[in-house]
Lab assay of single mutants.
Amino acid sequence: MSIQHFRVALIPFFAAFCLPVFAHPETLVKVKDAEDQLGARVGYIELDLNSGKILESFRPEERFPMMSTFKVLLCGAVLSRVDAGQEQLGRRIHYSQNDLVEYSPVTEKHLTDGMTVRELCSAAITMSDNTAANLLLTTIGGPKELTAFLHNMGDHVTRLDRWEPELNEAIPNDERDTTMPAAMATTLRKLLTGELLTLASRQQLIDWMEADKVAGPLLRSALPAGWFIADKSGAGERGSRGIIAALGPDGKPSRIVVIYTTGSQATMDERNRQIAEIGASLIKHW
């Protein structure tokens, strides 16, 4: 067993022997301040990774656009098919120029040779490549099948209805392509620590998230040296922004954090800054 596999296998073990965790309302004060600064709703939840206990939450059962955070769930569904012998990570998928959609920095470079399922998941999570996500959605049967996968996990809230990039439209009061912070946090925890996926697939999923290259201005910008984070960000229309993450000190994750916002007129930089400040408060009061 590799060191990384050992780390993920012992996530519940280490967490069980940690000192009790206590909620700190100071972080919620910052979440509410972010709402004021952005002029928009902000949803927040913080779960203990081992027990699933909610440590703090704000608007945990209000719907927010998922945006690209759905790509972690998508690759979880792909990995479940791999575990069941219905898919192979090494299978190569070929596609054409007509398949390319807006923001496809990886797939646009491989029109000639195609990409493997493993490479597509890596591109979808680490670079948020939209064509990679659409190609992977095709392998599982489309958005409705991802929703069905989530329902089978016990998540009857999260739903995907459309493809990239239309799913980022974020129309107010439109339930399409949305989740709730509580539902997303619980589902992410199941994917990373539950028995739904094999140990190898859980490790692969967290490795992809740990290698995320496009979430630097968010929670990662607030992390002290030595902290662990595996995350996936999302951005959408109407001032929408979000991030889902597993993080913790001492090089291992111990909490799940989900943050979503929508309806702001603020710039992307300002949305990023507010999420980073929430992260800084979380870490300060850990």
Rank of each mutant, 00 (worst) to 15 (best):
residue 10 L to F: 10
residue 27 T to P: 06
residue 136 L to C: 04
residue 149 F to R: 07
residue 229 I to A: 05
residue 252 K to I: 11
residue 88 Q to E: 13
residue 139 T to C: 09
residue 53 K to L: 13
residue 271 R to F: 04
residue 35 E to A: 07
residue 5 H to P: 08
residue 238 R to M: 14
residue 275 I to V: 12
residue 9 A to V: 10
residue 111 L to K: 08
residue 64 F to C: 02
residue 113 D to H: 11
residue 27 T to I: 08
residue 187 T to H: 05
residue 98 N to M: 11
residue 169 E to Q: 12
residue 155 D to G: 01
residue 180 M to K: 14
residue 284 K to L: 13
residue 60 P to Q: 13
residue 267 T to M: 11
residue 67 M to D: 10
residue 248 G to W: 02
residue 75 C to N: 02
residue 26 E to R: 08
residue 94 H to M: 14
residue 190 K to F: 08
residue 275 I to F: 14
residue 104 S to V: 04
residue 280 A to W: 11
residue 22 F to C: 13
residue 219 L to V: 10
residue 141 G to I: 05
residue 103 Y to D: 04
residue 90 G to C: 09
residue 280 A to V: 13
residue 58 F to S: 09
residue 150 L to D: 01
residue 23 A to G: 13
residue 123 A to Y: 04
residue 273 R to T: 12
residue 249 P to G: 05
residue 82 V to K: 06
residue 107 T to A: 10
residue 90 G to E: 15
residue 280 A to S: 15
residue 82 V to T: 09
residue 44 Y to P: 00
residue 89 L to D: 05
residue 203 Q to I: 11
residue 226 G to Y: 07
residue 224 P to W: 03
residue 55 L to I: 13
residue 178 T to M: 03
residue 1 M to E: 01
residue 249 P to N: 08
residue 116 T to F: 04
residue 31 V to Y: 01
residue 244 I to P: 00
residue 61 E to C: 07
residue 182 A to Y: 14
residue 5 H to W: 05
residue 229 I to S: 03
residue 36 D to R: 15
residue 77 A to P: 01
residue 10 L to S: 10
residue 249 P to F: 04
residue 118 R to V: 10
residue 161 D to S: 07
residue 218 L to T: 04
residue 251 G to S: 12
residue 84 A to H: 12
residue 24 H to Q: 11
residue 21 V to F: 05
residue 232 K to G: 00
residue 90 G to L: 10
residue 44 Y to N: 00
residue 14 F to L: 09
residue 130 N to V: 01
residue 3 I to H: 12
residue 202 R to S: 14
residue 215 A to E: 04
residue 68 S to M: 00
residue 126 T to L: 08
residue 195 E to S: 14
residue 266 A to W: 06
residue 281 S to L: 12
residue 67 M to P: 00
residue 158 T to F: 07
residue 82 V to A: 10
residue 285 H to N: 14
residue 248 G to R: 02
residue 106 V to F: 07
residue 266 A to R: 13
residue 195 E to A: 06
residue 221 S to D: 09
residue 206 I to P: 01
residue 167 L to N: 07
residue 225 A to D: 14
residue 246 A to D: 03
residue 36 D to T: 15
residue 11 I to M: 11
residue 150 L to M: 11
residue 221 S to P: 09
residue 268 M to N: 07
residue 32 K to P: 01
residue 158 T to V: 04
residue 89 L to C: 05
residue 64 F to T: 01
residue 133 A to G: 12
residue 32 K to Q: 15
residue 173 N to G: 14
residue 253 P to A: 13
residue 55 L to P: 02
residue 101 V to C: 10
residue 244 I to T: 06
residue 124 A to V: 08
residue 35 E to N: 03
residue 246 A to M: 15
residue 4 Q to A: 12
residue 182 A to H: 12
residue 216 G to I: 07
residue 43 G to M: 00
residue 129 D to C: 01
residue 263 G to K: 06
